[in-house]
Amino acid sequence: MRSLLVLSLICLVTILSQAQSPCDKIKYLDKLAMAPAELPVQDFKLFDYNQIPDSVKARLQTEIIRETSAAFFKELTIRSVKYLDSAINEKLFTPVVVLDNDNNPVNFVYAIFYEMKFKGEIPFVFKLEVKQNGELLKKGQFEGIVNQKKKIIPCTKALSIAAADKEAPITKPGDIYIYYNQTYKTIVWQIMEADNATGNSQHVTVINVFDGEILERNEFLKGMTNFDNE
């Protein structure tokens, strides 16, 4: 009887240890439900980075190093690339006027998603909007990202903060994102309430990754969980 009980406990511990927590499935900017930028990246089309001309890649490398450093560029990896051209733009419900740093109209732009790592090997994804010739669409796209020395609070800590929120606690977390929030000029944890069978929206809590401050409480319509265009 005792051996059976011990075996049952071992099985339970094994199952619990294998169970995934929400923090095991963190999502990044390239999978974000709502595009945190002026351009409608959710409507861009996927593109193969290898198809970008070498001359364009070389200019982009120069641009990134000029804005950051060679060491920073060396640590980057490509996650995905999307593009917007005039043909795609014309088909949008609300076409946009794309302007560069000098307010000149641009008919083609790449959105290149790069992955880097902060202290503690925490992955982070950011987006660069780039002209067809490899020039950055606008300056200042590395704001809040480069030379960040502060320690990032872990996902588990962000979950506890969201759960303890007296105004709108999230006790059953669903999707979790980490991305640069342009409104608050900082990187954030975005924790979505787990989907349920009732209601048309899901509660969302946005938390500063550096100090744990709750910056925003929102409601997202269900179904808006991914803007990847396959």
Rank of each mutant, 00 (worst) to 15 (best):
V41N: 12
D43P: 00
Q42C: 05
R59L: 08
A58K: 14
I52L: 08
R59N: 15
Y49V: 08
F44P: 12
K57I: 11
D43R: 13
V56D: 09
I64A: 04
V41T: 13
L46N: 13
D30Q: 12
D30K: 02
A58I: 06
S55Q: 15
K45M: 12
A35Q: 10
T62C: 08
A33P: 05
T62F: 06
N50V: 00
L60D: 14
D30L: 02
A33E: 08
N50P: 05
D54Q: 11
Q51N: 15
I64V: 09
E63W: 01
D48Q: 08
F47W: 06
I64H: 04
V56T: 14
Q42V: 00
P36A: 02
K31T: 09
Q42G: 04
Q42M: 08
E63Q: 15
D54L: 09
F47T: 04
K45T: 03
M34W: 06
F47E: 11
Q61I: 01
P36C: 03
P36E: 05
I64P: 02
D43M: 08
L60R: 07
D30T: 04
S55L: 06
R59G: 15
L39I: 06
L39T: 07
V56F: 13
Q51R: 10
A37E: 10
Q51M: 09
V56C: 06
V41G: 14
A33T: 02
E63D: 10
R59W: 00
Q42T: 00
L39V: 05
L39K: 03
L46H: 14
S55I: 01
N50I: 00
N50F: 07
Q51A: 11
R59S: 15
L32I: 13
V56G: 06
T62W: 01
P40F: 05
S55W: 08
K31I: 03
K31W: 01
L39H: 03
F47A: 13
L39R: 03
L39G: 06
V41I: 12
A33R: 01
L46V: 00
M34T: 07
M34P: 04
K31V: 01
M34V: 08
K31C: 00
D30W: 00
R59P: 15
P53A: 10
D43K: 13
I64S: 01
A37C: 09
L32H: 05
M34D: 06
A33I: 05
K31S: 09
L60Q: 12
E63H: 02
I64Q: 03
R59I: 00
K31E: 14
Y49K: 04
N50T: 04
Q61W: 03
D48S: 13
Q42I: 03
Q42Y: 14
V41D: 12
N50E: 15
D48N: 14
A37V: 08
L32R: 01
M34S: 07
V56N: 05
K57H: 14
A37N: 12
T62M: 09
I64G: 02
P53G: 04
L32Q: 01
K45P: 03
V41W: 04
E63I: 02
K57W: 00
K45L: 13
P36G: 05
Q61R: 12
N50D: 15
V56P: 15
T62E: 15
L46M: 09
F44H: 09
D48F: 09
Q51G: 10
T62V: 04
F47V: 02
D43V: 07
K45H: 14
F44Q: 08
L46K: 13
K45W: 07
N50Y: 10
A33F: 09
A37M: 07
K57V: 13
M34I: 06
